[in-house]
Design a binder for these strands. Structure first.
Lengths: 207, 207, 207, 207
DNA sequence: AATGAATGAGTTTTCATTCAT
DNA sequence: AATGAATGAAAACTCATTCAT
């Protein structure tokens, strides 16, 4: 009655939103623990406590959940990244800002991640391949390519460089969240230094 | 150990060896095309032309094939790497040699599957991870960590650095094999320069 | 009996009647399009725009809807048929009247669904059987059996003859509604001539 | 060894053929008892005593079984029908031969048919709608249309007539097999007389 | 009464593995 | 050993029905 209903806020709508999120959260965990391919829809729904059929009220398949997870990740990280690009005066400060933003995001996210994976399993080195990280990577990659194109690092092969920067951030980030305490600053220092030094050493022959 | 393959090579034995290899080859292809988790034993055996039951005369499961493939990869690559490390006078030449060896292996390996993949299938799919590549990676990583530990790059965090080097090689390698023509020299130049420059820029505060 | 529909017609009641009818109409369509067995309660209710749960305020199951639809058909057709039998002086005029009544009903009924059916779907599917058609058939059959029993066609096996007449009417009727324009007169002429001629040719040995 | 193997006759092949036929037989029964739409793959496979998965070694779906059943029916009846058409001098003897062939087939087939259907079910009058009968009907229809086209019954609407003849045969046939003893001759006499007389009475205005 | 999400039993389908041949 | 059909446990998915709002 006195609801200032910008959004539907009935109990039903609330439950719906909660369930949708619960499935997403469960999927995030299960993808992390078992890997996208290995896990089943049942694994996901079991963790939510919802009934099997309820999954299909929200998503049509495991893949659709994956996409939704990507979207969510992108939706959360992209604004951060965009802000950094706007603020950063030069390439170096952008790199640092981006890396720190990403590491912050990672530290925030990693809760259930990569930790409890059964170590005896011959998992094909699926490092941090999470849907959300995929989305984030795309953002970062685009930013880097653009930066390069703008002349920041003259002559360097933009595709190779973007791939390399992302790879470094990903792998060092994974190491970072595995350590205690999680040291964002230290890891970022390392990565930024490596990238900056590396870019300087690059052959000046573009693509 | 001193087995120099003076193994029985009667007709029976030959077939056995051939079948074992055929399964391995088929698995390599299928892992590449569908991914380890997504593919089935039937996918593998179908490609060999053998009967379903025959698979189990050679391997107990898909996982066992994975391990066998990893072993094969390691067996092929380790000697190369060891030789490089023995020959290389300094860190730089070792890095170059290792990278080139790895890229050569990659280019060799990827003749087949990168092309074949149906491009209209954007399924979430762990990118081209073959057990053999994983094995090679592990070898390289071990070598780098060892090199670093031995003082090659004073003060740098060895774990981070190894992770970063591996990551760079992997990602740039993947880009490399996606281009035509495959330019091992160019890619290796890029990676080596990036790593060398990066190492120089590193903070001197080890773990 | 003497219910001349002096029923409550308040707003509430009207909606109830409307909904009940809407479900019936939707079911008629869906039964025609998908077949009784193949269609689901959701298929029916979806077409009404009502909520899933509302279905159960009116009918307890798909089967109950089927029965209701049959009743409706019978209720509509029986009076017509009775009137024809009362008016018709002889067997021939009764047959003609009954056939024309049935064909009229058919043409009326099939406005909707025969057209809509996707023609690329050759699924094994019981041909256009609507509960209302079934009800009409039962009425006609009963009338014919009665007529035969009364001596209209001396000696003919009444059961066989009723079955045959019904069958002819049904199949030719189906053909008729599939043609454009729908020619009730022509089809009725054909059927009546066939039946009249056929009856004349029948062996005079009843059951 | 001394197998004069025109066909594979190993125990395996034999079992395969038997299983395939067992599934077909089970499906025939189940289609008859529950109707095509209502019955499930499980209903079919349960009756064979085979495992659930085994069904899919032979057929991909219920529909495929349906088609196979149709094929089987057509394969058995068509030669009979063709022979009759070749032998029959005129339209009348062809009709009689065809009807008798069909009724013979029906009497042969009906074993499990139409009998045990639960009578309380509001089955949409799926009279003899068996896949095999569908196949047979198609054959008959084709023969009749051809006969008509050839001038046998000048001017009659071939489509209507074919539909009517088939309908008569179907319905009377159904009645016939429901009686004891099954009197093929009597039923055929009735049908032939009806058709012959009916054709004579037909208006001479063709399509 | 209407709503529509949740439920969970039931169905289809897949696939690793076994085992008779 | 090789074969390949049978198995059946488990996964994906559907849908009639309930019930809190």
């Amino acid at each position: 009655m006195s609801q200032v209903a910008y959004l539907p806020v009935g109990k039903r709508e609330q439950t719906k939103v909660q369930n949708r999120q619960a499935i997403l959260d469960a999927a995030r965990e299960v993808f992390g623990e078992l890997g996208y391919e290995a896990c089943t829809v049942r694994d996901i729904i079991r963790r939510t406590g919802l009934a099997a059929g309820t999954f299909y009220n929200y998503y049509r398949s495991k893949e659709e959940v994956y996409v939704a997870l990507s979207d969510e990740g992108a939706r959360r990280f992209t604004p951060l990244l965009k802000a950094q690009r706007a603020q950063s005066a030069d390439w170096e400060s952008f790199v640092r800002a981006a890396i720190e933003a990403y590491f912050g995001f990672l530290a925030d996210e990693h809760k259930s991640w990569l930790a409890r994976r059964p170590p005896d399993e011959p998992h094909p080195h699926v490092h941090g391949e999470t849907p959300e990280m995929a989305a984030v990577f795309n953002e970062v990659r685009e930013a880097i390519v653009e930066e390069i194109a703008r002349g920041g690092t003259p002559g360097a092969d933009p595709d190779y460089l973007a791939a390399a920067c992302i790879a470094i951030a990903r792998e060092v980030g994974e190491k970072m969240v595995a350590r205690r305490p999680i040291d964002i600053k230290g890891a970022a220092d390392f990565v930024v230094a490596l990238i900056q030094g590396g870019v300087k050493g690059l052959p000046k022959t573009g693509v």
